[in-house]
Amino acid sequence: MAESRDYLEMSFRSIQCFSNDGRLDANELGKILAIAERDGVIDSNEMRVLKGIIDRVKPYEIDSAMRTKMQEISEKISS
């Protein structure tokens, strides 16, 4: 079985989102998470990409929707 390349698509999508307006919103982050989940498993490369994306979000950019989405991701990749 070939290694999933979804993490590359996730990285590319995050670059597009950040470059669009300089920030990422909860909806965009949800779409990136959906790429990771579409095969039913969030693999180590996808986890690495998700962590990297979250690390780039500035504290002042986090609203309640983003906080909720980040918590959801944290729960999914820490289990």
Rank of each mutant, 00 (worst) to 15 (best):
E75A: 14
K76I: 04
R38F: 03
S79V: 08
I53R: 02
S74N: 10
E9P: 00
G52K: 01
Y7R: 07
L29V: 00
V57S: 00
D21N: 13
P59C: 05
M66R: 03
A26F: 05
E37A: 06
Y7I: 03
D25I: 06
Q71Y: 11
E46C: 07
E75K: 10
F18N: 10
S14Q: 12
S14G: 03
T68C: 01
M70T: 04
R23L: 14
F12S: 12
K69D: 08
R48F: 14
E61T: 03
Q71H: 09
S4A: 14
S79K: 08
I15N: 05
F18P: 08
R23H: 15
R48D: 11
G52R: 02
S11M: 13
S19A: 11
V57Y: 01
R67K: 11
I42S: 08
S78I: 02
T68M: 14
E46F: 02
E37C: 02
G52S: 04
S74H: 06
M66G: 09
D55N: 08
I77P: 01
K51M: 09
E3M: 10
I42A: 10
S14F: 03
Y7L: 05
S4W: 09
M47F: 02
V49Q: 08
M47Y: 02
L24S: 04
L8H: 09
K69Y: 02
Y7V: 02
Q16W: 00
Q16E: 09
R48I: 07
I53L: 04
N45Y: 15
S64G: 00
L24K: 03
R13F: 11
L29D: 01
V41R: 12
A2T: 07
N20H: 12
S19K: 13
C17M: 09
S44C: 05
A36P: 06
M70L: 04
E61Q: 12
G52M: 01
K58R: 13
M1L: 06
S78A: 04
I77A: 07
Y60E: 15
R5P: 00
K51W: 02
M47Q: 14
S44H: 08
E72M: 10
Y60R: 15
D63T: 00
E3Y: 05
I62W: 01
S11D: 07
S14W: 06
I77G: 01
E37W: 00
I15D: 08
L8K: 13
E61A: 01
R48A: 15
I54P: 12
Y7N: 06
I54Q: 01
M47T: 14
R13N: 12
Y7F: 14
E28V: 06
I15K: 11
F18W: 14
F18C: 09
L33T: 04
E46D: 00
M1R: 05
P59E: 09
S19R: 15
E3A: 14
M10G: 04
I73H: 03
N45H: 15
S74P: 00
I77L: 07
I42E: 08
S44T: 11
I35V: 15
I32C: 04
K31M: 13
A65Q: 15
I42T: 08
S74M: 07
M10C: 06
M66K: 05
E28D: 13
D6M: 07
I62S: 03
